[in-house]
Deep mutational scan, measured.
Amino acid sequence: DVEPGKFYKGVVTRIEKYGAFINLNEQVRGLLRPRDMISLRLENLNVGDEIIVQAIDVRPEKREIDFKYIP
């Protein structure tokens, strides 16, 4: 289970104008929005990159997770 405030290693699987989709595993995916990136820009991410993200909002009923990147 993903818990708000905890850090997780994930893989960038898709990049859109509104953010990057990060997979923690095959069943768990969330969104990293540009506003939640500190010292990292969306255009510097590539599909396949491994990054450490912090879960900031977890909505299991909608199967949605918002992430934050903190270097």
Score class of each variant (00 low, 15 high):
Leu45Ala: 01
Pro34Gln: 13
Arg35Phe: 07
Lys62Leu: 14
Glu26Tyr: 14
Gly5Trp: 08
Leu24Pro: 00
Lys68Cys: 08
Glu64Arg: 09
Tyr8Ala: 01
Val12Pro: 00
Arg41Thr: 15
Val53Thr: 01
Val58Ser: 08
Lys68Leu: 10
Val28Met: 10
Met37Val: 04
Glu64Ile: 11
Pro60Phe: 09
Gly30Ser: 01
Val47Cys: 06
Leu24Phe: 04
Asp36Gly: 04
Arg29Leu: 09
Leu40Asn: 05
Asn44Ser: 13
Asp66Asn: 09
Pro60Ala: 13
Arg41Asn: 11
Glu61Asn: 13
Pro60His: 11
Thr13Ser: 13
Pro71Ser: 10
Asp66Thr: 10
Ile38Met: 12
Phe7Ile: 08
Asp49Leu: 07
Leu42Phe: 09
Ala20Asp: 00
Tyr69Val: 04
Ile65Gln: 03
Val53Asn: 00
Gly10Met: 04
Lys68Trp: 04
Ile70Glu: 11
Gly19Asp: 01
Asn25Cys: 09
Arg59Phe: 05
Ser39Cys: 13
Arg35Ser: 10
Asp1Lys: 15
Phe21Ala: 03
Tyr18Lys: 05
Ile52Asn: 05
Arg29Phe: 12
Glu3Lys: 15
Tyr69Phe: 12
Phe67Pro: 01
Gly19Phe: 06
Asp57Phe: 12
Leu42Cys: 03
Ala55Val: 15
Ala55Glu: 02
Gly19Ala: 07
Val12Thr: 01
Arg35Met: 10
Tyr18Glu: 07
Val28Gly: 04
Arg35Glu: 10
Glu64His: 11
Ile38Trp: 09
Ser39Leu: 12
Arg33Trp: 02
Lys62Glu: 10
Asp66Leu: 12
Phe7Trp: 13
Lys9Leu: 12
Gly5Thr: 05
Lys62Ser: 12
Leu24Cys: 04
Ile22Glu: 00
Ile15Ala: 00
Leu45Glu: 00
Lys62Asp: 09
Arg14Trp: 08
Ile65Asp: 02
Glu50Asp: 12
Asn44Ala: 13
Pro60Met: 10
Asn25Val: 05
Arg41Asp: 10
Ile22Met: 02
Asn46Ser: 15
Arg33Asp: 03
Leu32Tyr: 02
Thr13Asn: 05
Asn25Arg: 07
Lys6Val: 09
Ile38Asp: 13
Val47Arg: 06
Gln54Asp: 01
Tyr69Glu: 07
Met37Cys: 05
Ile15Met: 07
Gly5Ala: 05
Asn44Val: 09
Leu32Met: 07
Pro4Val: 15
Lys62Arg: 14
Pro71Met: 08
Ile56Arg: 07
Arg59Leu: 05
Glu61Gly: 13
Tyr8Leu: 03
Arg33Thr: 03
Arg41Cys: 09
Glu61Pro: 07
Ser39Arg: 11
Ser39Phe: 11
Asp1Ser: 14
Gly19Thr: 02
Arg14Cys: 06
Leu32Phe: 01
Ile65Met: 05
Tyr18Asn: 05
Phe7Pro: 05
Gly10Glu: 00
Leu45Val: 07
Pro34Ile: 11
Pro60Asp: 08
Arg63Met: 13
Glu50Cys: 13
Gly5Arg: 07
Ala20Leu: 04
